[in-house]
């Protein structure tokens, strides 16, 4: 979209008699379009696709045998287990919160609603390592509750609970944020109709509200899960890097890499990359589905 390209476009378009294509007033020259498409793909390839491909190549550099050997390691399995455990707590916790928050915000009017919506987004504005740090300040040895926890022999920081808490914090807004705008747009008409037909609160939610938000909810769950499994900064701060105890998969990748155990590092990374690609595939499918339903219900 540079000046030289566009001013040149006039000259080219004028002299482009060979292609008998009607140049619409709102379209750019054909070559410019191809330039845009080329630049887009090149940009994406350089920063995203080639590096992603490299992860798999590096992981398989010494063959399938070496690749699978990377997982024949108790530390790798403990990292996978902790990652799954963390997501299994963080995702449902944020789903319950997201449903409660979106019901209160979208179906009722009350003072301070905009403040509440802003506060829900707050964790996005906090840097990942700071997200970890705040839990260290609460539960660490020198933190507010540190001495009390120590005297009761409860460990949160440098243990699994800290990892879970930090993960809940960084994924906190993801479900709520998908649901709130959708439920606000849908309004309360259908719920009121259900109430006037004699349905109770739980029946109304289960039979009317939930079916209307199911795709957005699923979308939020997928994003929340991907972030929960992939979080690095916040988890790194609270984990204390105890291999076999507080290492999640991303942290395990880092420690393998720092030990120059490249094949294993890339192998575990490739597993995470596959998770990302799968997330993307499901997310795209859900998105298309949502759009289709939106179009269907928009028809007269």
């Amino acid at each position: 979209m540079g000046p030289s390209a566009a001013s040149a476009h006039r000259g080219i378009a004028a002299g482009h008699a060979a292609a008998p294509r009607l140049q619409g007033t709102t379209a750019d020259a054909r070559w410019l379009e191809w330039l845009f498409i080329g630049v887009s793909w090149a940009f994406l390839a350089l920063v995203l696709l080639v590096p992603l491909g490299a992860v798999f190549c590096e992981a398989l550099r010494e063959g399938l045998r070496a690749y699978f050997d990377a997982f024949d390691d108790p530390y790798a399995w403990s990292a996978i287990r902790l990652t799954l455990f963390t997501a299994a707590i963080a995702v449902p916790a944020n789903v319950v919160f997201g449903l409660a928050a979106s019901w209160a915000i979208a179906k009722f009017e009350f003072r301070g609603k905009t403040v509440l919506i802003t506060l829900i987004d707050l964790p996005f504005a906090v840097a990942p390592v700071v997200s970890g740090l705040i839990y260290v300040l609460l539960f660490g040895m020198t933190g507010w509750f540190g001495p009390w926890l120590a005297s009761h022999d409860i460990q949160i920081i440098f243990a699994a609970p800290g990892v879970v808490l930090a993960t809940i914090f960084v994924t906190f807004p993801l479900v709520a944020r998908e649901l709130i705008p959708l439920m606000q747009e849908q309004g309360t008409d259908e719920e009121e109709a259900a109430a006037s037909l004699g349905a109770g609160g739980w029946q109304t939610f289960r039979r009317v509200t939930l079916p209307n938000i199911k795709w957005a909810l699923m979308y939020g769950v997928i994003l929340c899960n991907a972030r929960a499994m992939g979080e690095f900064g916040a988890v790194s701060v609270v984990s204390g890097h105890l291999r076999g105890k507080t290492h999640t998969m991303p942290l395990h990748v880092e420690s393998l890499y720092n030990e120059y155990n490249f094949v294993a590092a890339f192998a575990v990374a490739s597993l995470l990359a596959m998770l990302a690609v799968a997330t993307l595939a499901v997310k795209t499918a859900v998105q298309w589905r949502m759009q289709r339903e939106l179009q269907d219900s928009a028809e007269p």
């Binding site: 008409d189 259908e190 009121e192 109709a193 259900a194 006037s196 039979r207 009317v208 079916p211 219900s297």
Partner: peptide, 11 residues
């Protein structure tokens, strides 16, 4: 109750 915008359950 009959609503202005029908409020039919779309699903």
């Amino acid at each position: 109750f009959v609503f202005q915008h029908y409020a039919l359950f779309r699903h």
